[in-house]
Design a protein around this nucleic acid. Structure first.
Length: 419
DNA sequence: TCTGGGGTCCTAGGACCC
DNA sequence: TCTGGGGTCCTAGGACCC
């Protein structure tokens, strides 16, 4: 029952079932635990004390209580009083992700790591005479027995359909969604289930009397364009299973590097606000230097206690990776932005990135920049060798504010919203 | 007691240029 | 003096993804 044509590509989308939770469960079992977190109502959740308390991943039994990813933990606990909550361990997830991708790579070099727990694999050239379903089942079986967790695998002739297929019945399932299966398997689904139809777009469709992916697929694209601009066109194509994006094994260079944090208390004074911004600038700029990049745009964002969000950005005359220079801009932006209302969240991010080896210099370039550069790199080196807290700015001492905030694990797979 | 943190892309309006 | 038109750049905000 091969429903694919000989000229088509064969793309697999591999999606780890409840990734963070499964990985925690597998790790604990391998280290002597007797309880499998996947078999009881459980979640991976942030620290409530510091206001990071949301559900990051849930077990299937937890889902049966109506618990949703992104939900606040006290609400989840109200739905299920016996809920087990475990803290996240991102370095473990990174190791599991790498092990998964090493295994996938045995089946094709055309492997795209879409996120920490999702990958695309183009097996067109390595398939030979084998049936793609058999290969997918073999991959899933090996992941389960060798690595100790389960995946869903979607099979189709493009990435969009493969991704939609992996989202069908879970866990530990292989599904196909070839073009001739679209009416039966895709069009019957609610429009909200289509990739890129989020919480704001779905209600727009409901108002236009579009409730299923099939209805969207049969709507005049000109009508969609009138309501949703080019996004309408894209979604019409997705609803019809059209996607020509290739599986790209090369990660494109980052377009922006930033860090943000929700503070453990409301910040109502400039001194503390600026310390948080400095703390974020320290980590974000050291990531910039580690990647050998310079930034020409600095942006600062804040969130008030009512969760409203504001941001300001500024383009610099010349790109830089210098902590002090970047912080001065961030500070100016913050002062423009802030009206004095208490804040619960801060963000600093850098964009318009360029390579640090060749860049346009300005005749106004500060001569002292070379000394500042060597200071930054010395601090980076000391922190790398002796730990992050080995060098700390005096202003943070006794401030109750962490001197370095945010930061990602090296090589954490970048995520993107588009295929 | 409200909702993390890392990203990408798109749009609209204003400034400015020719 | 009474309002063109095309283009680029910059900025703020909003949508989506995992």
């Amino acid at each position: 029952m091969n429903t694919y044509k000989s000229g088509d590509r064969i793309i697999l989308h591999i999606d780890v079932n409840s990734a963070f939770l499964s990985w925690e469960a597998a790790y604990r079992l391998q280290h002597g635990a007797t309880l499998d977190l996947r078999e009881v109502p459980s979640v991976v959740g942030g620290d409530e004390e510091s206001r990071h308390g949301i559900v990051l991943a849930k077990s299937i039994p937890a889902k049966k209580y109506g618990i949703q990813t992104g939900e606040v933990l006290w609400q989840a606990r109200r739905k299920c009083p016996d809920l087990i909550i475990v803290p996240p361990d991102y370095s473990l997830y990174m190791q599991c992700s790498t092990a998964l991708n090493d295994l996938l790579y045995e089946y094709s070099p055309l492997l795209e790591r879409y996120s920490v727990d999702e990958s695309f694999l183009d097996i067109t050239g390595t398939l030979g005479k084998r049936n793609p379903l058999d290969i997918a089942r073999e991959i899933a079986n090996r992941i389960r027995t060798v690595l100790g967790f389960t995946v869903n695998i979607g099979i189709s002739s493009n990435k969009l359909l493969a991704k939609m297929a992996s989202d069908f019945e879970k866990p530990d399932k292989v599904h196909t969604l070839f073009p001739d299966e679209i009416p039966k398997k895709l069009w019957v689904l609610p429009v909200r289930d289509l990739f890129m139809v989020g919480r704001r777009t779905a209600p727009k469709f409901y108002r236009l009397n579009i409730f299923t992916i099939g209805q969207l697929a049969h709507t005049d694209p000109k009508f969609l364009r009138a309501h949703l601009k080019s996004f309408g066109n894209l979604l019409w194509q997705y609803a019809n299973g059209i996607d020509t994006s290739p599986v790209n094994p090369f990660r494109p260079p980052a377009k922006g590097i930033g860090n943000s944090t929700t503070t453990s208390f409301d910040v109502d004074n400039e001194r503390e606000a600026l310390l948080f911004l400095l703390s974020l600038t320290e980590t974000a700029s050291s990531r910039l230097r580690a990647a050998r990049l310079l930034a020409q745009v600095v942006s600062v964002s804040i969130r008030k206690t009512d969760l409203t969000f504001f941001s300001h950005q500024r383009k610099l005359l010349t790109p830089t990776d210098n902590t002090e220079r970047l912080f001065k801009v961030a500070r100016a932006l913050f002062r423009e932005l802030w009206d004095g209302a208490p804040l619960r969240h801060f963000g600093v991010s850098f964009s318009s990135l360029c390579n640090d080896r060749f860049y346009q210099t300005s005749i106004f370039e500060d001569e002292k920049i070379y000394r500042k550069k060597s200071l930054d790199s010395s601090i980076d080196t000391i922190r790398l060798n002796y730990g992050k807290t080995s060098v700390v700015r005096g202003s943070f001492i006794n401030s109750g504010i962490p001197p370095l905030t945010g930061g990602v694990i090296d090589d954490y797979p970048g995520m993107r919203s588009l295929l």
